[in-house]
Nucleic acid binder design. Structure first.
Lengths: 187, 187
DNA sequence: GACGGATATGCAACCCGATGCATAAGAGAT
DNA sequence: ATCTCTTATGCATCGGGTTGCATATCCGTC
């Protein structure tokens, strides 16, 4: 059900079309929630059924009409109610960590490859987050509460990426040093 | 499909019943993968169909028979093939972070409550991880590769918990200081 | 005597997320 | 001319995870 409230929060900040929401999720909310456009359109349709959002069609020349959604009173109340609820922490399900339990079946080459991919992934994430930081929160000290909250979500993304990179370094140190030492004397 | 390979890895280390596996996941693998017993039994049945595991019934007095599963040759090959594959990093879906985008609809009281719950959660996790560390990896320097890999999975759990606690501290500093200062002068 | 917890297994239904496919047209590249 | 990208919307299907419920017995507690 969380996608629903992510959409309500986004629309509460500013009315938008499904397409806009998809871009917002992809470009600025990837560290908070992931959703495909199919999922977004489906959920918007359901929320429309339940009158949590209202829609304003905007005709366009030679393109499908834009359907601009905004939050209704009922939607706002639903969102507020959800905010007062507690939620269990999301379950951990990470294929990479599962591999570590395969013991000797997991060879150093595969481990090295996965580790390199992981590092590349989080380095790229860090670059993205740093650029979001510069673009949206240039003056950290003078943020309104509204933007300080969003900044903290971004901070969470940064800390996650840094934490994984630290772990990857530990992995190299403790799991792959011997492999390097065992290669033909060029270490 | 990852549950399947998590089960294969666990059974490859040591044959077990669905019940045993459930306890292993709950007690020792929570930082790697989560699964309910229903899910485990269902997946074991499927894997039996596909001959990835074999079963040895063990009659018991006055209780349902234990069904001890072990990995077959085919199962081992399937696991090895999976280990050579790359996997995208799991998507981020965290209701707590979504709340941060509700702006002024999220009041300090709710935020404080959620933050306290989050801190309690990860402090408890840390305690669990520290105790696993003492119990299974007392002598870090003398671990076989097999156990060093598992130790690194545990390290990942520890780093994640620490990273969240650090973030929670930042949240208190940047979001809730004013709230504390606004309380009746007992700070 | 009733109730909850541990042992040990499993079915059935539901919902959400992932994936594939579809429609429709303009813009720019090769 | 064809390909790919962008804008803009959506349906259909499948699979995995969640929840509820069921069976059967022993043990300790209230």
């Amino acid at each position: 059900m969380t996608l629903r409230f992510a959409l309500l929060a986004a629309l509460h900040e500013e009315p938008a079309t499904g397409y806009d929401l998809n871009r917002r999720f992809r470009d600025r909310l990837g560290h908070v929630w992931n959703a495909s456009h199919q999922q977004i359109y489906r959920e918007l349709a359901r929320m429309l059924d339940e009158a949590l959002v209202a829609v304003q069609p905007v005709p366009q020349a030679d393109r499908p009409d834009r359907k601009v959604y905004r939050v209704t009173q009922g939607g706002k109340r639903a969102l507020q109610a959800w905010l007062t609820e507690g939620h269990p922490r999301p379950a951990i399900r990470d294929p990479f960590l599962v591999k570590l339990f395969a013991g000797e079946l997991l060879n150093d080459a595969d481990l090295e490859r996965d580790l390199a991919e992981l590092e590349a992934h989080y380095r790229e994430r860090l670059r993205t987050y740093r650029s979001l930081e510069r673009r949206w929160f240039p003056d950290e000290r003078n943020l309104s509460r509204h933007y300080r909250l969003q900044y903290m979500a971004l901070r969470r993304g940064i800390l996650t990426a840094e934490s994984w990179l630290q772990w990857a370094a530990e992995m190299r140190e403790r799991m792959l040093l011997s492999a390097r030492g065992a290669s033909k004397g060029n270490g």
